[in-house]
Amino acid sequence: MMALFLALCHQHILLAWRGGHTTLIVSFLFIAIILMPFGLGPELALLRQLAPGLLWVVLLMSVLLSLDRMFQADFEDGSMDQMALMALSLEMMVIAKSLGHFIALFLPLLAAIPLAGLLLNIDAAALPALMLSMFAGAPALTLLGAIGAALALSIRRSAMLTVLLVMPLYVPVLIFGASSSASALSNGGAVDMASIAILALMSLAALFLAPLAAAAALRVALR
């Protein structure tokens, strides 16, 4: 079963990379960040103040945009039917796909954050805390996204619907993520462990609950 799990995960990463989704999504993050100073004005102090919050919001947007890659292609080309016949429950399949999604799209996004932060004149001392909070919240974002992606499956051109479904679920993660980053900024880089712990808790809860919900949605879509 482990070999099957890893094969699904491997395939997801390979296809995300080959299809150019990784490059596209990281480019989106950079372009959105580059636009910020044009909108807000080139005031360095202001940008430094806003940087962690802006990075969090743009990260969320990028992840939302990537979600229609999660199950849509498998559903349309018949791979989902095949997955239902594999010796792996749909719940485990959701986890395998989410892990693949995390590695193929989320990790490159996180790797781009320090550079994107530089463009917003981010306080280098606040960067470790920001990255830590993003790492802690990332599994929750991916897994909650899987629910939305699965729910919107049976409707064509459903990328926008997925975004609308998932956005409210992301709000708690954003609140705690941004608050931990803000407190790091005001405390000279000290990590607010309470917020990190809450983010990690959300991730663990999502790991437990999201596969059940997403798999139920997939079963409905297969009907």
Binding site: Q11, L14, L15, R18, G19, A73, E76, D77, G78, S79, D81, Q82, A84, L85, A87
Partner: peptide, 18 residues
């Protein structure tokens, strides 16, 4: 039954990019 079955449907379940 499910784990002993192969299903070949109208859509091929193949990945164009592999």
């Amino acid at each position: 039954r499910v784990l002993q079955s192969h299903y070949l449907g109208h859509v091929d379940g193949l990945k164009a990019n592999l």
